[in-house]
């Protein structure tokens, strides 16, 4: 599946149509539904600019940009570079981020539940070494190693080592010198 290639002259026009539709949805559904005041409103007997004014203006410009793009697309060649591989890449990257966040959030609490003192909670240990580093080291090592392996299309121990060293370096950079800073995900507990 190819959304756009250099040879396709209509792809910018298609993108323009998508943008115009998006502008119509924002302008006629989202803005009226999610802003309490109008474009103008009466306050203390004076007419004032309402909260809907600026978003409506931005949406109008968005629609105008879309319309111009349709006109451009009908007359010039496209330089769009989104194809099926880009979408596969984006989904793959999103999966890597999902695992990264899961490791970040849950490594600490799970290890505290398994190996911590009886009744210990991660929330109370979020600023105590080594517990506070567990999620960051596993998550950080994972994301760096996974992306290096992804780009090189092979897994190496070197990638794992770079991930671990990078995570440790960031702990040294952000956590050790500053008492008031919290590494991810400790501020959320």
């Amino acid at each position: 599946m190819t959304i756009g290639t250099h040879s396709n002259t209509k792809t910018n026009a298609i993108l323009g149509v998508v943008v115009v539709v998006l502008a119509l949805i924002i302008g006629f559904i989202w803005i009226p539904a999610d802003i309490d005041t109008g474009i103008f409103e009466k306050a203390r007997r004076r007419l004032e600019i309402g909260d809907a004014f600026a978003p409506t203006l931005a949406t109008t410009l968005l629609g105008l940009g879309g319309a111009l793009l349709i006109a451009e697309g009908l007359t010039s060649k496209s330089n769009l570079k989104v194809d099926a591989r880009s979408l596969v890449f984006a989904l793959g990257l999103l999966s890597v981020f999902a695992i990264f966040i899961a490791l970040l959030l849950w490594t600490g609490p799970i290890l505290v539940a398994l190996f911590g003192a009886e009744g210990a909670e991660y929330r109370l240990l979020r600023d105590t070494a080594p517990w506070k580093y567990l999620g960051f080291i596993t998550g950080g090592t994972f994301i760096v190693a996974a992306l290096i392996s992804f780009m090189e299309q092979r897994f190496t121990i070197k990638a794992l080592v770079i991930g671990t060293v990078a995570s440790l370096a960031m702990i040294i950079l952000y956590d050790l010198p500053f008492d008031d800073l919290l590494l991810p995900p400790n501020g959320d507990f």
Binding site: L147, A166, M170, L182, G187, D188
Partner: peptide
Amino acid sequence: LLPVILLLTLTAIYVQETKM
């Protein structure tokens, strides 16, 4: 280099905002 920059950027954001 790029994955390390990515992790560094996300860490920098978290340290500043302190929320996932």
